[in-house]
Structure formats: C-alpha cells, structure tokens
C-alpha cells in the first residue's frame, strides 16, 4: 500500500500525515511499541461509576474508573469501523475500590443489616477522599441494584455528612435492578 492511496482512503483516520518511510501498514509502529513497553499509556479517565449492589444478604460497593485510550485510533488501525465504535460504546472499566460488609468484620447475618451498609458506604466515601480519586470537575454516576436494606443506608449516608464531598460530583443516578421475563422457575415459597 502506498502512502497517497492511504491518505486518500477516508476510513483510515490517520491524524498525522504518513511519511514515505512508514508506509507498511501491517507492521506496528516501533515508537508506539516502545511506548507500550515502557508502560506510558496515554489514558484519560472519562468518568467514574459507583456501583452499588444491595441484595438480601450483603452490601457491595465498587468505585470504577471508565478509561479512554487517547491513542486508540492510531494503535488499532487494523480494526474495522464497527469494532472501533464498539470500543467507544463500552470503554474499559477499571475497578479502583471495592468495599463490602464482610471486609469490615461483619459476619453472617450481620452483613445484611442497615448498620453494616451504613458503615460500608461511609468507608467507601472516606477512601475516595483519602486516595484523592476525584478531582473537582470529575463526574460520578451512581448505578444501584436491588432493594435490600443497604440501599436506604447508602442513600442516607450519601445525603448526610459522610457523602458531602462526593455528592456534588454526581451527575447521574440509575437503577440496574434486573427483572425476569419468563425464564426458569424460581424457588418455591418459603414456609416458616
């Protein structure tokens, strides 16, 4: 493939004009390779997500960074257009923090209690602050799942003193509770 043909091709998305000595397309650019080996990644945190799962037995919170590789288009020239769209649709999520009631010493049925969930939430907010994860303009999305007792505790902690630092950064709240449409038969009713 010659360089004028590549530059004329509109799907190629070459940001910098290619010089004649780097025309071979199926060989990775040595500069990029050395960059990746050194571990210098040109990444940017697009937004943060705070996932909360509040089921019957436990409360789980995880702080996730949604990361975009700024050199993605240059590094992945071989990918098809649709594959590139899929990358931007579901950007890589990196878990930075995870707290659950069991980590704080709550055992067995105690994990399901309101108090445990409150402590889990306050621990999470404290760690976010301590590690300095959030900048002043960073965006946080809340994704909540299921309706255990921990959900009320989490929202109470977030609206109280503990969550005062993280609250202004929240840009969206969503509910991720899964509902069934048909499917297998659930367990039989418990008789106590």
């Amino acid at each position: 493939m010659t360089s004028p043909a590549r530059s004329a091709d509109p799907i190629a998305f070459t940001t910098s004009p290619t010089t004649p000595d780097e025309t071979i397309s199926n060989i990775i650019d040595p500069r990029l390779k050395s960059q990746s080996l050194k571990g210098r990644k040109n990444e940017q945190v697009v937004l943060w997500k705070l996932y909360g799962s509040f089921h019957r037995h436990n409360t789980l919170l995880s702080m996730v960074a949604v990361v975009e590789d700024l050199d993605f288009m240059e590094k992945n020239d071989h990918l098809t257009y649709n594959e590139k769209v899929l990358y931007y649709m579901q950007l890589p999520h990196h878990v930075k923090l995870h707290v659950s009631a069991g980590q704080l010493g709550f055992r067995k049925a105690q994990r399901a209690e309101y108090e445990a969930a409150y402590q889990v939430s306050s621990r999470m907010f404290k760690q976010i602050e301590e590690k300095g994860l959030l900048g002043p303009n960073d965006k946080v999305e809340l994704v909540l799942k299921d309706f255990g007792r921990g959900r009320e505790a989490f929202l109470a902690a977030l609206q109280g003193k503990e969550g005062s630092r993280i609250r202004p950064n929240i840009v969206r709240i969503s509910d991720n509770t899964k509902l069934r449409f048909g499917g297998s038969r659930p367990k039989k009713l418990r008789r106590l």
Binding site: K84, V85, L86, I170, R172, I173, N176, T177, L179
Partner: peptide, 25 residues
C-alpha cells in the same frame, strides 16, 4: 458521511435494565 466512531457510539441507545431508569442530576 463518515463520522468518528466516538460520535457514533454516543448516539447509540443505552440497552439493558438501565435503559429508561436513569436520571440526570
């Protein structure tokens, strides 16, 4: 007619349980 994949990805609808259950602050 060719858009940047990022712009195309932004236009694609949200799917799964979250769809229709999100509220912006």
């Amino acid at each position: 007619s060719v858009k940047h994949p990022r712009d195309v990805a932004k236009l694609i609808r949200v799917q799964g349980p979250v769809a229709g259950r999100s509220v912006d602050v």
